[in-house]
Simulated scan of single mutants.
Amino acid sequence: MKIFHFPNTSRLSKEKFETVYRVYYSRLFYYCFQFISDEEASKDIINDVFEKLWTQRHELKEETLSTFLYTLVRNKCLDYIKHKKVEQQYTELYELITYEEPDEYELYEQQISQIEKIISDLDEPTKSIFTKCYFLNKKYAEVAEEYNISTNGVKKHIMKVLRLIRGKFETKK
């Protein structure tokens, strides 16, 4: 059953976009929620999907609309899950080098200096990739596009740096 009929120009008008939004929003939200079990993040992902739908409305075909939407949601959920894993690794790294006692702040400062040294000694493009992802909060996909590599390539650079840092502090404990 076809819910939408696009004219030959394959143009998604504002009215048809609103209809697509009303029909698919709930479905996509629950589909997304099955992946990530986070209501706010699911809403954000679905809003991103509809934003992309709007920006690509001139390229859409009626027969592939549903597939396009569900694929986009799935991919954004997978990106979200990957990002959460990296955040968890960063949290673990942070826990390795943080202390609760105020008299240990000097040690903390030394460790921060050691991390800065490790980062400054990195070769390019690893150094820039790590800096953009961790300090400038850029998404892997953005950095990957900038360096003309895959998101897995970005992940490999990040993991390399995290291994170096983790190795520096695990041997001291």
Score class of each variant (00 low, 15 high):
residue 2 K to W: 04
residue 3 I to L: 15
residue 4 F to A: 11
residue 4 F to T: 04
residue 5 H to E: 15
residue 6 F to E: 08
residue 6 F to K: 12
residue 9 T to F: 05
residue 9 T to Y: 06
residue 12 L to I: 11
residue 12 L to F: 04
residue 14 K to E: 14
residue 15 E to A: 15
residue 16 K to W: 01
residue 17 F to L: 15
residue 19 T to D: 13
residue 22 R to F: 03
residue 22 R to T: 02
residue 23 V to H: 15
residue 24 Y to C: 06
residue 28 L to C: 14
residue 29 F to P: 10
residue 30 Y to S: 03
residue 31 Y to F: 15
residue 32 C to E: 09
residue 33 F to G: 00
residue 33 F to W: 10
residue 35 F to Q: 03
residue 35 F to W: 08
residue 36 I to W: 02
residue 36 I to S: 04
residue 39 E to F: 03
residue 40 E to D: 13
residue 42 S to I: 00
residue 45 I to D: 00
residue 45 I to W: 00
residue 46 I to G: 02
residue 46 I to C: 13
residue 50 F to Q: 07
residue 50 F to C: 11
residue 52 K to A: 09
residue 52 K to C: 03
residue 54 W to M: 12
residue 55 T to H: 10
residue 55 T to L: 14
residue 55 T to A: 11
residue 56 Q to D: 13
residue 60 L to V: 06
residue 63 E to A: 10
residue 63 E to W: 04
residue 65 L to K: 10
residue 67 T to L: 12
residue 68 F to H: 09
residue 70 Y to L: 14
residue 71 T to P: 00
residue 73 V to L: 03
residue 77 C to S: 14
residue 77 C to I: 09
residue 79 D to E: 15
residue 80 Y to T: 01
residue 82 K to F: 01
residue 82 K to A: 11
residue 83 H to R: 14
residue 85 K to T: 04
residue 91 T to Y: 08
residue 94 Y to Q: 07
residue 95 E to W: 03
residue 95 E to S: 13
residue 96 L to P: 03
residue 100 E to N: 11
residue 100 E to D: 13
residue 102 P to T: 02
residue 103 D to Q: 13
residue 105 Y to R: 14
residue 105 Y to K: 15
residue 106 E to T: 14
residue 108 Y to P: 00
residue 109 E to V: 08
residue 109 E to R: 10
residue 110 Q to V: 08
residue 112 I to T: 06
residue 112 I to M: 12
residue 113 S to H: 06
residue 115 I to P: 03
residue 118 I to N: 05
residue 118 I to T: 01
residue 120 S to K: 11
residue 121 D to H: 13
residue 123 D to G: 04
residue 123 D to N: 10
residue 124 E to M: 13
residue 126 T to P: 05
residue 126 T to N: 03
residue 126 T to M: 11
residue 129 I to L: 10
residue 129 I to C: 06
residue 130 F to I: 03
residue 133 C to F: 03
residue 133 C to R: 08
residue 137 N to W: 09
residue 137 N to G: 09
residue 137 N to I: 00
residue 139 K to W: 02
residue 141 A to S: 15
residue 141 A to Q: 14
residue 142 E to S: 12
residue 143 V to N: 10
residue 143 V to D: 11
residue 147 Y to A: 02
residue 147 Y to P: 02
residue 149 I to G: 01
residue 149 I to H: 04
residue 152 N to C: 07
residue 153 G to C: 07
residue 154 V to H: 06
residue 156 K to V: 09
residue 156 K to Q: 08
residue 157 H to G: 01
residue 157 H to T: 02
residue 158 I to H: 00
residue 159 M to T: 11
residue 162 L to Q: 08
residue 162 L to T: 01
residue 164 L to C: 00
residue 166 R to E: 13
residue 168 K to E: 15
residue 168 K to F: 01
residue 170 E to Q: 10
residue 173 K to P: 00
